[in-house]
């Protein structure tokens, strides 16, 4: 009976047009799945000191939940304000800037000195630089009359490329030993999340989510297009600006916390649109966030238990995300 009802609810009617119960059902199922994955991750094969193990795993799970929701929410917001579902905040240079900061610091101070700095200070500096970058980028492109979002995205891509080229240049002149240590820093790492940073990041992400809550209804109107949104009384400019600030904070915090998680946002947000069959912001950010957390926690679990941690999760995410991105492009082109 219940299975039958699920089946009807999940059936894609009229190619992707949902009946109203479907998004709620998807959210409930994702919630159950997330709880199961988290429970498995926390309790599987517990050995030795229970307190220690749970604390360690709890931090990892906390980091992955946080990053998952932050990256997913940022991607959904960016898609909505640009009316484009194949953009990712990582295209706009945040990841490249993070890598440049690390590389530049390794070059100037050496990785030893860099790693010796208090993590909280390092985190503060990294987030500060990335937010400053976002502020400069937004100010330059949104300060005047001209407020073309695609110009902003394009500028982000170009500055991202500049950052990457600079990084490549510095890496060439870097001491090989330093380079090895550096490489380790540049991949997203969920194993060593600092507890204080986790709390600070969680606070920042929660503030952003609460502060943008009143926007969600208006974002539905923004999603159907700028002119329709203005006609319907949405202050389009203000909404877009607030979203850009939210995206900058979310991406900066999550990148500084664990490192670049390219493509994850793109991947999970599009999966969320497909699964829920809607663009309504009452459902999509939550669905995308849960999918991201499930992917991270489940992926990390499989890597730890099956592959004995020889591969990094972020490598897998980039690999799968890359393939998904290409499929998405092909599908859009085929329309």
């Amino acid at each position: 009976m219940l299975v039958d009802r699920w089946r009807t609810a999940l059936a894609v009617r009229g190619r992707g047009i949902p009946d109203r119960g479907r998004p709620v059902l998807v959210l409930v199922l994702l919630g159950i799945l997330l709880a199961m994955v988290t429970a498995l991750f926390m309790t599987y094969d517990l050995k030795g000191s229970l307190d220690f193990a749970l604390e360690l795993r709890g931090r990892k799970v906390g980091g992955m939940l946080l990053v998952g929701f932050a990256v997913a929410y940022a991607a959904v917001l960016l898609h909505t304000i640009t009316n484009n579902r194949i953009l990712t905040p990582s295209l706009m240079g945040f990841d490249a800037l993070f890598v440049l900061i690390q590389t530049g610091a390794a070059f100037l101070f050496g990785t030893l000195a860099f790693l010796a700095i208090d993590v909280r200070l390092r985190f503060g500096i990294e987030v500060g630089i990335m937010l400053a970058f976002a502020a400069i980028l937004y100010r330059l492109l949104f300060g005047g009359e001209n407020r073309d979002l695609f110009l902003l995205v394009l500028a982000g891509i170009i500055t991202g490329t500049v950052f990457s080229s600079l990084t490549a240049l510095i890496m060439r002149v870097l001491d090989p030993n330093e380079f090895l240590t550096l490489q380790d820093l540049l991949f997203a790492n969920f194993s060593t999340v600092n507890r204080d940073l986790l709390l600070v990041s969680a606070a920042a992400v929660v503030v952003i989510i609460v502060a943008t809550r009143p926007l969600l209804g208006q974002l539905d109107a923004v999603a159907i297009g700028r002119e329709h949104a203005i006609n319907l009384g949405v202050n389009h400019r203000a909404v877009v600006r607030q979203c850009l600030v939210a995206i900058a904070v979310l991406v900066s915090v999550s990148t500084a916390l664990v490192g670049p998680v390219a493509f994850l946002g793109l991947l999970v947000s599009n999966m969320a649109y497909q699964l829920t069959g809607t663009f309504r912001h009452r459902y999509t950010p939550a669905a995308a966030g849960m999918i991201a957390a499930i992917a991270l926690i489940g992926g990390q679990f499989i890597l730890q238990e099956v592959f004995a941690s020889v591969v990094r999760l972020s490598v897998i995410i980039s690999f799968i995300g890359g393939i998904y991105f290409i499929l998405l492009l092909l599908r859009e082109a085929g329309r």
């Binding site: 992707g16 047009i17 009316n83 999603a223 159907i224 329709h228 663009f279």
Partner: peptide, 9 residues
């Protein structure tokens, strides 16, 4: 021009 960026009934 009335393009709508998302799928609506």
């Amino acid at each position: 021009e009335n393009q709508v960026a998302v799928r609506l009934t």
